[in-house]
Simulated assay, not measured.
Amino acid sequence: MSSSLTRPVVALTTGEPAGIGPELALMLAATEKRLPAMLVAVGDPQMLAERAELLGLDIKIEVTASGSRLPQPRLGVLPVWPVALRVPSHPGVLEPANGAYVVETLDVAIAACRDGHAGAMVTAPVHKGAIIDGGHTGFTGHTEYLRDTCSVDEVVMMLATDAALHGRVAGQPRCALRVALATTHLPLREVADAITETRLERVLRILDGDLRRHFGIDAPRIVVCGLNPHAGEGGHLGREELEIITPTLARLRDQGFDLEGPLPADTLFTPRHLEGADAVLAMYHDQGLPVLKYAGFGRGANITLGLPIVRTSVDHGTALDLAGQGVADPGSLRVAVRLAAEMAQRSG
């Protein structure tokens, strides 16, 4: 199923049921005639039908067994691999009891990808607090959950604006814009201890390899942020650059990697540096992602690199305040689905 040359199967987890994820999936089914994927939602069919009625969307929910063959895509039809809510859900109202439901949707999609029933998975946003309050106390995010479930040592979170998703674009900076993270969902006080030579080398090898594999870039050029202000100012504002980051970059350059840095993050995100880059590696979540989201919020995708499966996601959160009103923008989900289909075709 997932090996179709034109339309790989993409399993879309519908995310936090009280958020905008379910309605974004419905909006795609209602409006997209030419998605390059056979899209199947993973979620509660009754909840999706009720949400479609609330929003006035004429959508047929077509329930099918998980992993079963899908019909050819049709406008206004949303195939669903069913997972049952634990308790009823209402837009904007979190129910921690449904944390287990959200995690189960992820497990269904992961299993489908690993078993060859889907070529990729796309995740609508989840609410980490609701999942934790529901009993999954170790849940820190999609990225870490996928890493642990797929039994890999390291994965890399990378976000990209739509202009950067299809290789180099003539007349635009080569990095327009891809930002990967050396650490993901950590409290700020823990970040410095997490920046080790071992982690940096793993992250850079994954980033370099998946830029080649998934984006068709033959010789990726990666620009690396420093951790500290002014990249440590020669050791006066921190020594991580001198003792960890610089030696790691030098060792990898000797092995043929094209790396620039470490550079101060406050000047790295300028045309002079981005013009020659295929990706930026930031040291922590809020060092790199605010810049990217300012450049292309709602028009980008989140990609998990280093997995044995293909996973993309939206670049935004659950937007509980917008849920159920029909005003959410499916633009990022559209980009994420298209990217997942392209990655699946390259990986296949």
Rank of each mutant, 00 (worst) to 15 (best):
A37E: 05
L289G: 12
T246F: 04
I222R: 01
G317E: 05
R114M: 14
A336S: 11
G276L: 11
S313N: 09
D315I: 00
R199T: 03
A29L: 05
V108F: 10
T183P: 00
V103Q: 07
L48M: 10
G129A: 14
E260C: 05
G326T: 07
H285L: 09
G56M: 09
Q72L: 11
E240A: 09
D258N: 12
L48I: 12
F139E: 08
F269K: 08
T270M: 03
H142L: 01
P45N: 10
M158C: 07
N228R: 03
A250G: 00
H166N: 13
L146I: 09
P271M: 00
A336M: 07
D321L: 06
G135M: 14
V40K: 03
R34P: 01
V83A: 11
G134D: 15
T123K: 03
A25L: 02
A100E: 15
L57D: 04
A170D: 15
N302L: 04
S151A: 14
L320H: 10
T13K: 00
G135L: 14
P173A: 04
A219C: 11
V77I: 15
M38H: 15
T64E: 10
E241M: 08
F257G: 02
A160M: 11
E95F: 02
Q345R: 13
F215R: 06
T161V: 12
A180C: 05
E241T: 05
A25S: 11
S68A: 15
L26E: 09
I309A: 04
P271E: 00
T14L: 02
L211P: 13
T183E: 02
T14H: 00
L227T: 05
